[in-house]
Amino acid sequence: MTEVFAVLVLLLLLNIVVGLARVLRGPSAADRMLASEMFSTSAVAILLLLAFILDSPPLLDVALVLALLAALAVVTFVGRAWSDLQSRQSESARGMESRESD
């Protein structure tokens, strides 16, 4: 059984490595953010499998923390970077006068 798990771990890691291409190519910020979310989900899965393979319960805690905190990055992203980008885009659509008066 552990053999199967080990192969799964490897596959998940491969999944991350392949997914890195999405981060590289984008094209939009949201694509990159979503790809990184996929990674944290994969990392949680890897940790859970490793916890069984290595028989090490602390890894379950690591997975738990990772799962919880991965949400934070997304929320920060949505709350700050994304909305800033949007407001900047709408601002630049409105014209350049306001910027020059700055």
Binding site: S40, L66, L69, L72, A73, T76, F77, R80, A81, D84
Partner: peptide, 14 residues
């Protein structure tokens, strides 16, 4: 994954 990410992203937004 959590705190530094949040710090960096919010700094980037600012």
């Amino acid at each position: 994954a959590g705190a530094t990410g949040a710090l960096l992203l919010s700094a980037l937004g600012r």
